[in-house]
Computed example of a mutant assay.
Amino acid sequence: MTNLVLFGPPGAGKGTQATILKDKYNLIHISTGDVFRFNIKNETELGISAKAFMDKGQLVPDEVTIKMLNAEVDKNEGAEGFIFDGFPRTEAQAEALAALLEQKGTEVSAMIALEVDDEILVERLLERGKTSGRPDDADEKVVRNRISVYYEETAILKEYYKKQGKYYGVNGVGSIEEITQRLSDVIDKL
């Protein structure tokens, strides 16, 4: 079973690459944001719980997030593996994900981070902001803050997975095909 944690700052191309990789390797793409939106929209017990924290401007506790991910993994029993996008974000979440996968008799195969220069990210996001209708992509100050928050949050995880020999940084600049090939080169060696 291949289980990937796909990382990269906002605008690095995670969504685009996850879509390609899930088809190429027959993996299930689990985007934490999508899982949250689904549970909240459908007013599941976990969605109601998450929304209560979000409405107060608080982070959703790891326990709730893990339960949502566990439900997603269980929904896809027999899958050849998963791409986790947007999770984990902290060492505690990484340990919880490891425990969840261990219960299923598997583990994280690799954390692959798309690495892109900050100025390129800013350009990409501002360009996306013109067409996506996403207000968080239209304001350069907000974009730069999101990028710096990413580095603050994930520096710890980079070290966490490096210690396990599971961290792979991949150049995220070039054509979609070139980046897919670089990612595939890493995955094919797992």
Rank of each mutant, 00 (worst) to 15 (best):
S132M: 09
G78H: 08
K22Q: 12
E119A: 12
G172T: 08
E107W: 06
G11C: 11
L100E: 11
E140I: 01
I48P: 00
K104D: 08
G172Y: 09
L100T: 10
A94Q: 05
T154I: 10
L4Q: 06
M68P: 07
I147Y: 00
G133L: 11
Q17W: 03
V143M: 01
E77F: 11
K189I: 13
T19P: 04
I120T: 15
K189E: 13
T19N: 09
R89P: 07
Y168G: 03
V35F: 01
G78S: 12
K130Q: 14
T2L: 10
G13H: 04
I30G: 07
N70T: 15
K24I: 14
K141D: 09
V173P: 00
T2R: 02
N42Q: 12
P135E: 06
V142I: 13
A94Y: 10
N145G: 13
V35P: 04
K24P: 06
E102D: 14
I40T: 09
K67I: 10
R89V: 15
E119K: 08
G81E: 08
R128A: 05
L4A: 08
E159Q: 13
M68N: 11
D185M: 14
V122Y: 08
L69N: 05
E152C: 07
I176M: 10
Y168W: 07
E43G: 04
N39G: 09
L125K: 02
I187K: 05
V116R: 05
F82R: 00
K67A: 11
K22N: 11
L125G: 03
A92L: 15
G8T: 03
Q181P: 01
G165D: 09
A98F: 07
K75T: 09
H29T: 10
V173E: 08
T180C: 00
V73K: 04
V60L: 14
V149P: 00
A94N: 05
V122G: 08
D74F: 06
K56P: 01
L21H: 01
V122N: 13
E102W: 04
L27F: 02
D139T: 02
D139C: 03
S49A: 15
D62P: 04
D62F: 08
N171H: 07
L21S: 04
F87G: 05
A50W: 08
E102S: 14
A92I: 14
A92V: 14
V108A: 04
E43Q: 15
M54T: 15
A110Y: 03
N39I: 02
E91Y: 12
L121Y: 01
F84D: 02
G47Y: 02
F7A: 02
I120E: 15
R134W: 09
G8M: 00
A138Q: 12
E43W: 06
T131S: 11
L190Y: 03
N70R: 12
D139P: 00
L59H: 13
V142H: 01
D117W: 09
I30R: 00
T106Y: 00
N70G: 12
V60H: 00
K141F: 04
Y160R: 03
I66F: 06
E127F: 01
K24A: 15
T2E: 00
G172V: 05
E159I: 12
I156A: 04
E91K: 13
G13I: 02
R89T: 14
E107A: 12
L101T: 09
D85K: 06
A110V: 14
